[in-house]
Nucleic acid binder design. Structure first.
Lengths: 334, 334
DNA sequence: TTTTTCAATGACAACGCTTTCATGATAAGA
DNA sequence: TCTTATCATGAAAGCGTTGTCATTGAAAAA
């Protein structure tokens, strides 16, 4: 209504009480006579009052914001997780602030510092390349929830999934369908996930007694484009294969396209397995067999855990598992 | 280092100057002798000082944050735009804060109020159902950039694209390929975009003298699932068609899947056109012919425009156009 | 040299809220 | 009825900055 926004003091004057009282009503800090409470509430809605969060933050030391470090906001993978966090945070009074690390340890450290200077009350770190040490140091000032690693330290909770086991499971699925020449498109070089998934793939092969032909392992970077390149490479190498296990869905999409362009059918000629179960993987042609990551659920749980920590509790975060979702991109070899 | 974070005052003491001087150095507000500047800079890095944004916001009245109202953070469409905004904002000192409206006018109003109470310095509204009036009212206190509508008002800049013309163009592309029985999967009922795209479709048909069979217009809600349903519906209706123009890519993905499940080939049996050119549309099989929305670029431009407005300028935002990208999901009818 | 001007700096009052402390009023115990 | 807890409330001191104002010292002008 007016030009400057209304302040608590104006509300107090309008209601004929002291600012302290208004504050108490706002925060439920102490009992207040009904008469005054009503007067204040009337004043609040009359003046259309909204407390100034910056002032609240400064005075109370709590900003009611949570810093979320992702790697890439636009990626479908992080998108789902962010939505989970948003969901888990709604109605808690906390607001998430997102920052992109772009998979660069320095950048990440910088972003975290920036978040800290914004007085966030806690931190959610979605994977990332920050060192454990840096996190432990940060945790001395802020509670932290981190995904994608196992980290036991005071004031830190971590969500970790057994990528290796799941990758092994996915590969075994292909083996179970009779495939023996199984290519793998590995993820970005320095991601721990990539190693784990590659290790799972190797494990499945060696456990079954299949000798791994190193030429069947192509290196991608988790992007769709790298999936295309990987398949072209694989095809150019002329080492025969009947199935591909891609380290994530996005590369599987790229692989799918490259195969299509070569006139190779999925699953008739080649079976294809991804990893992540992005929302879109139901809608690819054919729908993609993949390992489901409970990304959204992890986001929700991470948020809830952090809020609990902020509430002074020491929550035991739930365990999550990975699950193979068999759709139509894989079939028995004949 | 220490338990509580360092304050400007501690830095001042360490450097042997007054807090004012430190503040001035931080903000470049006034000239400071080199000797002192160096002393202060040394103190800052020694104490690892980061200014408290909440305090800055309170004292200066500027929070250096920008509120961004999206509808759904996780959607690929908004994701690209958010990335653009993030990009356009980097190195400006401003940080975006995202809020989800979930396509509900009330929810949106509530989120905007929340953002306002966080003392954001400006607002970017990505489409949404808020009324123009509400925006104009908000704009009295905050500069606003809004996409998806044409709105000329003080303190508001808008980015608008001619969806109707582009939709017409897309439909004409199909007509030009010899298609006459063209189905349309319309977008969500109350989105202005849906109307515009449907109108463009109608326009193209009537301009070419093709009579529109209303049974060929299916109603979706912009989600992949609704594309599946729409095609199933269309097929069940048994009205023959040779091409589909979906009001967005996500529904086109769904349509693609439904066709696949019915054993109908794209583009051999049916041509398919989408709208948006999501990043994934290059990687569908076949790659999707679609109308490219410069989502990322609009995000960048929206951010830049808002920052300029905050800098006291009255920028003329750049114009953007829509462009038909012909890929492999459409072919000449024979 | 003396006066004027100006750049550099410090003191201090905001900014809008929370939170302790003190106080008067009310209810409970003696 | 008088004292003692208890409760509701107000006054006031921060929270960590910024920004105004006043002060100082030195360079420029006289």
């Amino acid at each position: 209504m007016n030009d400057k926004s209304t302040t608590l003091e104006q509300v107090a004057r309008e209601a004929g009480v002291s600012p302290s009282t208004v504050s108490r009503i706002l925060n439920g800090t102490a009992g207040v006579k009904d008469a005054k409470r009503e007067a204040v509430e009337r004043a609040i809605s009359k003046l259309n009052y909204q407390p100034n969060k910056a002032a609240q933050a400064l005075a109370s030391g709590r900003s009611m914001t949570i810093g979320v470090l992702t790697q890439n906001i636009a990626s479908p993978f992080y998108g789902e997780c962010l939505e989970g966090i948003e969901n888990g945070l709604s109605d808690t009074g906390y607001t998430p602030i997102f920052a992109n690390g772009h998979w660069d340890a320095n950048e990440e450290a910088h972003r975290i510092a920036l978040l800290a200077s914004r007085q966030v009350d806690g931190l959610i770190i979605l994977t990332g390349s920050v060192t454990d040490g840096a996190l432990i140091e940060q945790a001395r000032r802020l509670p932290i929830v981190v995904t994608g690693r196992q980290l036991n330290a005071p004031n830190i909770k971590s969500f970790w999934l057994n990528d290796r086991a799941a990758a092994r499971h996915a590969t075994e699925h292909l083996i179970g369908l009779g495939h023996r020449q199984i290519a793998h498109i590995a993820g970005a070089q320095h991601h721990p996930d990539s190693h784990a998934r590659l290790a799972g793939y190797r494990e499945a092969l060696s456990f079954t007694g299949i000798e791994l032909d190193e030429r069947l392992v192509a290196r991608g970077d988790y992007s769709e484009g790298s999936g295309v390149i990987a398949v072209n490479q694989l095809l150019a190498d002329r080492v025969p294969f009947t199935a591909i296990f891609a380290a994530n869905d996005q590369m599987a999409y790229g692989a799918r396209l490259a195969l299509y362009q070569h006139g190779i059918r999925v699953p008739e000629d080649i079976s294809l397995v991804g990893f992540d179960d992005l929302q879109n993987s139901i809608y690819t042609t054919p729908p993609l067999t993949t390992v489901r990551q409970p990304t959204f659920e992890i986001g929700v749980a991470a948020a809830a855990t952090l809020v609990n920590m902020l509430g002074g509790q020491v929550p035991e975060p739930p365990e999550f598992g990975l699950e193979l979702i068999v759709r139509d991109s894989t079939r028995r070899l004949r």
